[in-house]
């Protein structure tokens, strides 16, 4: 168990007219190596939840235990926690500040007090992980890059801290379809290569369906659905009521199943659907 959350509650601006309950009794266990999709409508509390996981927000009540350490305790070592749990914010390109890309990515490792050699190694590695050419780009200003590239620099800045748990808050928000697929592809590779635990926040099912092996659905500060990806999509009615829905291809297969029970509708990608339909046709011919 790498992470355990018990009865987590959080209220913004308590005791003012702007009081806002954001998290309501969250209980959660996450195992090492899981790839989790955290999904929910705008304002459901996703960002609030992930900011608790590295101690940026202090819960109103409840406990968060990471790697055996209760991070909600007063004397918790926040620096160590933030190294262990890397958090990439929504629109992370807005936090870039250094003159060169190298320096910006090196900011995190330097704060950890690492030696110059080690820092350079890590910057190089992190840039390669997100598909940026180290030699070509390291001395350029991060502000001359395109939006998608800026975002990669920002993600590399967190990866360079070598977190055990990586949390990405809507890493594809505001990117075009190609930029989105590239970033998601890189996250997928990262997961396969580094075997770290990843939590991917999104409000699009299409984005996360192909990647993750477990889905958490949030609604009004609560986790309302928690399960293995394919299991979660079986609850398409519930999902639709929450305004989320299932990927188009899954929906298509569900429609097909309504016509003939013998077809499987637990597919997540077009590729899988193709295989299933071909098999189905073959079965039908043989019968």
């Amino acid at each position: 168990m790498i992470m355990k959350i018990e009865n987590l509650k959080f209220v913004y601006n308590p005791n003012t007219p702007f009081e806002q309950k954001a998290l309501d009794n969250i209980n959660l266990e996450i195992k090492e190596g899981e790839f989790i999709g955290l999904i929910g409508h705008t304002g459901s509390g996703k960002s609030t939840l992930v900011q608790h996981l590295n101690g940026l927000l202090k819960p109103t009540s409840g406990n968060i235990i990471i790697d055996g350490v209760n991070i909600t305790e007063k004397d918790a070592d926040l620096k160590a926690i933030r190294q262990k749990v890397g958090l990439v914010f929504q629109y992370p390109e807005h936090q870039l500040f250094e003159e060169t890309i190298y320096k910006d990515i090196a900011f995190g490792p330097k704060n950890l007090g690492l030696k110059e050699d080690e820092v350079r190694e890590r910057v190089k590695e992190a840039m390669e992980l997100v598909g940026l050419n180290y030699e070509e780009l390291k001395d350029r200003s991060p502000f001359e890059l395109s939006g998608g590239q800026k975002r990669r620099v920002a993600i590399a800045g967190v990866l360079a801290m070598k977190p055990k748990i990586l949390i990405l808050d809507e890493p594809t928000a505001g990117l075009d379809p190609r930029g989105r697929d590239e970033i998601l592809g890189e996250i997928q590779q990262l997961y396969e290569k580094e075997k770290i635990t990843i939590i991917l926040v999104s409000h699009s099912m299409e984005d996360i369906a192909k990647l993750v092996n477990r889905i958490l659905v949030m609604h009004r500060g609560k986790i309302v659905i928690d399960g293995e990806t394919r299991e979660v999509f079986k609850k398409s009615k519930e999902l639709e009521e929450l305004g989320l829905g299932v990927p188009q291809i899954t929906k298509f297969m569900m429609k097909l199943k309504e016509r003939d029970k013998n077809i499987k509708d637990t597919v997540l990608t077009v590729e899988e659907a193709k295989v299933e339909i071909l098999q189905y046709l073959r079965r039908k011919k043989n019968a």
Binding site: N54, R82, Q95, G108, N111
Partner: peptide, 10 residues
């Protein structure tokens, strides 16, 4: 937000 983002990087 920026403060938090930089704090997340130590």
């Amino acid at each position: 937000k920026i403060m938090k983002a930089q704090m997340a990087r130590g």
